[in-house]
Amino acid sequence: MRVVENLNHALHEVLAANPRAFLLGEDLLDPYGGAFKATRGLSTRFPSRVITTPISESAITGVGAGLALCGDTAIVEIMFSDFVTLAFDQIVNFAAKSVSMYGTRVPMRLIVRLPTGGGRGYGPTHSQSLQKHFIGVPGLDVYEMSPLHDNHAVFTQMIAAERPCVFFEDKVLYTKRMHEVDDLFTWDLTDGLARVHVDTPPDCVIIAPGGVTHRALAAMRRLLLEQEIVCTLLVPSRLHPLDAAPLVAVAREARSVVVAEESTAGGTWGAEVAHVLHRELWGVLRNPVALAHSADSIIPTASHLERAVLLTETTIHDTVLESLK
């Protein structure tokens, strides 16, 4: 099953299970079913609760917050995560604060879905990875889709938390297969943390969000076959707040740690993860936690230029080598 089908299935399940669950977004009616087809079939099956909207990202996110305020479950799709900046006020100043700023906790089941990332030549305003702008917003949970995490389980968790969530979906994942890793490795999933590994203890631990899984695996394969460097990959589903304990437990045993993400340089999620690990493992880590990310740059359109800016398998490979020096 492809990742987009797994996501589509999860959305079907959420809407089927709860007659007070809504889905809003642009161009999501059948037969089109959304720009990336994640919402295919939903408008046909749940016509009154799957609502196609005008091009009004701020308003539709606010509408989702309003539904959530009244006790409904609302899923809002922003066609490209780049446009979530238009909804930033509704997410940061309304939804995330409503769970706390009135002195008592207001449950808010609001999920903002965000197709994300580059690699498809869509250009500077349709290729960004803006996760970092949502890290550390009190009351807001940041999740990222992953080929190793069943989307229905993740949506169930997000809804159960009754806190507003942003859910980043790396666009390159949609057409990839679910639950498939290189046969050099085995993998498991514990409490929302996926771990891909070989039998021997790792030289390096790579921590990455779901969208980077395949690039990290490709780097791990090369490192293992060409240099006998053993890596373990950890993919958390929730990027923030981060459940640090299991990461710390694995990182403790390794010679180095690399955090890899597609975000451009500066103020990254990885910097936050590194800070947590440094605090927990100061004096234990043999090397500073290393960061792999895209360049400090806008993301160009032409593919040869885009490749030179974005995080690649090679960026991760080289950063792992550097971290072990």
């Binding site: 091009i55 250009g123 500077p124 305003t125 160009p300 359109t301």
Partner: peptide, 20 residues
Amino acid sequence: DGVGGSQHILREGYLSTGVQ
């Protein structure tokens, strides 16, 4: 330079962008 592509063009007295 191929950076902007189809929808992001800047030239004297002319600018396009892809965010509605």
